[in-house]
Structure formats: C-alpha cells, structure tokens
Design a protein around this nucleic acid. Sequence first.
DNA 1: TGCACGATGAAC
DNA 2: TTCATCGTGCAC
Length: 183
Amino acid sequence: MRRLGRAFYARDTVVVAQGLLGTFLIHKQRGVERIGRIVEVEAYLGPHDLAAHSARGQTARTRVMFGPPGHAYVYLIYGMYCCMNVVTEPAGHASAVLLRALEPVQNVRGRTQGPGLLCNAMGIDLRLNAHDLTSDKLYIASQSSSEPFRIVKRPRIGVDYAGMWARRLLRFYIRGNPYISKT
DNA sequence: TGCACGATGAAC
DNA sequence: TTCATCGTGCAC
C-alpha cells in the first residue's frame, strides 16, 4: 500500500476520478483504522460544470474546492448526511471527485453504498472538511498489484437540474462490483 | 433576518 | 412518492 501524494490529485479531474477506483480510503479515528476500497465516484469539473457546487462561485462552504488539490471537501446534505469529495487540479480550478461507494475492508461499520452511508460507515463528518489527504489521519492509498477491472461510465446521480451537464458521463464505477450504490 | 432547497436514504 | 432535517446562499 502506497499513499497517494499531492501530484496524484493535481491532474485532470476525470483522470483522477478513474484513478481513484480500486484505491483505499483510510481513516484513523481514535486508534481505530477504518479502510474501504473505492468502487464508485463522480467527477465535478469546476465552475463551468452546472452540477458542481463551485458553479455558484466561491462561498464559505465551497472555499476548499477552490483551494489546493489533495484535500477533503466534506459537506452536509439534506441536513443529515455528509458527502466526501477529493479536491483535484491546481488551486483555483475548483473541481473535485465525490466518493459514492466503498467496498468494506477493515473496521467499517454498516453499509457503504452511497455517499452519505459511506461517510457514516467510515466515521467521516464535517470536522474533516478541508483536511489534508496527504496526512496520516485521512488519506488514500493504492496497491501495487491488484486485479484488473473495467470502468463503467454513467450520468451522475441527483443532478437533473444541471441541464446538459446532467447527461455527461462523469460517474464511474468498477464493473460488476457488488457495492455500487445504484444501478 | 427569513426562507427555499439540496451531489441522500429509507419508509410507505 | 413522500419525508426527515438543517446549513447554505440569496432574497428582502
């Protein structure tokens, strides 16, 4: 297992999104190490992407999206669930990758199919917003050797309001994986 | 200061 | 299809 560095996140958002599939999200919480394999993600390309939070300009909430890559953008949705994103591309680009589903690996509690459930199961909440993903506490790691897989491309979930952007194939998941959030 | 609404999930 | 539940963003 090798921790992903800043350079990994500083690239094109679609490349990063697809590159995150099959990697491992690791959260060390009060001595407990929780690990989940990332099997489903969505790319949010920047202010021009009408489905992205950054489309309405920089605000207190979306500030981290406009910052340097390799940080966690965690926000509260519907007053009850947290969603975790990974900030991509150089500072100022305001793009990110939403983590949508994990395959449980270690110390994961409950279901992990869906962005809200995923955060719950991994113990991720708003306190981790803006956290540096090259840190020891919360990071993503890749495995040198892993089983090959096919990547399925689909429209993103829950962004029908975004017009043409809702139709773009920016949701990616590992084909055949049983932990995908929806079909 | 008020209020409509959301990158969800679960129940009905 | 409806609803829980609340921070955010923008209108007054």
